[in-house]
Nucleic acid binder design. Structure first.
Lengths: 139, 139
DNA sequence: CTTGAACCTGTAGTTACTACAGGTCCTATA
DNA sequence: TATAGGACCTGTAGTAACTACAGGTTCAAG
């Protein structure tokens, strides 16, 4: 037939393809995020295409700021045949709200820092307005 | 004269006044962020007003997202008599830029997550568009 | 057959706390 | 003055999500 089997991947290749570090891949295996792959005769890990797919999934979820606990949950849902889209949506929405909360925090920091730096602009050194602000701002 | 001495503060009082936890205060002492206060006859810490001032400074800097390493640097500059405002500004500016970079990251996450969740809105369950996105998005 | 890169396991370090356990001290009330 | 219960003490271990070794084995190209 048409398909030649894709050859197994060494851990370094998998790392290159996913943008993960080798140590991170072993770490994910240790904590049960990525299933243990078979080993070759010399004891080295040999991955299949589905490991690549799964690790890419993990990587993307992490890049979107999901925690590994979240990722574990998402993987569980993915692995259920006939998985509930509702739960996935709930998790994504919860995470989106956390991201928005963090954004609001950072925006507040940005505003205060920006003003501090601006107030210092070109100043001489009698009282540093930044130090001043840190002592006096009501946070 | 006019001023009655302010009484010394127990660690719990200092915690209440600064919004830090007691354990955090002891931690800051251990790592050299907050100087060791004198002890009373029973061995308990008794803080003075300047500890309160310093801890508030630390607390505010942390709230603005400075790392403890940054805070250490800021404290060193504050403690120099005739401290250089220039260095303080440089640190604040560097931190501001880090905050802005983080903001950009989070905004990108927010956009992707927001679209994922929106696309799922009201969907049935043939292929979950969120899971789909995690498998396929080029990150 | 050799050599150097890639792989292996296991452990310890990172940041900034937080949470005990198991004990001592302080202080308000009876 | 006795006592109860809160506040305090030290020291250790745990958290998230990796990262970085050390000290050894295996693979693959020439």
């Amino acid at each position: 037939m048409a398909g030649a089997d894709a050859p197994d991947l060494a851990i370094g290749t998998l790392a290159r393809l996913t943008g993960c570090k080798v140590e991170t891949i072993r770490y994910y295996e240790r904590i049960g995020i990525l299933p243990e792959p078979p080993r070759n005769s010399g004891g080295q890990r040999r991955y299949r295409a589905w490991h690549l797919k799964r690790l890419n999934f993990v990587r993307r979820a992490r890049d979107l700021g999901f925690t590994l606990a979240d990722v574990r949950g998402l993987l569980r849902l993915v692995d259920e045949q006939d998985h509930s889209c509702e739960e996935v949506r709930t998790m994504a929405l919860g995470h989106l709200e956390a991201v928005r909360a963090r954004l609001a925090d950072l925006e507040a920091m940005e505003a205060v820092l920006g003003e501090m730096v601006a107030r210092c602009e070109g100043g001489k050194v009698p009282d540093c307005p930044i130090i001043d602000a840190l002592y006096r701002e009501p946070a």
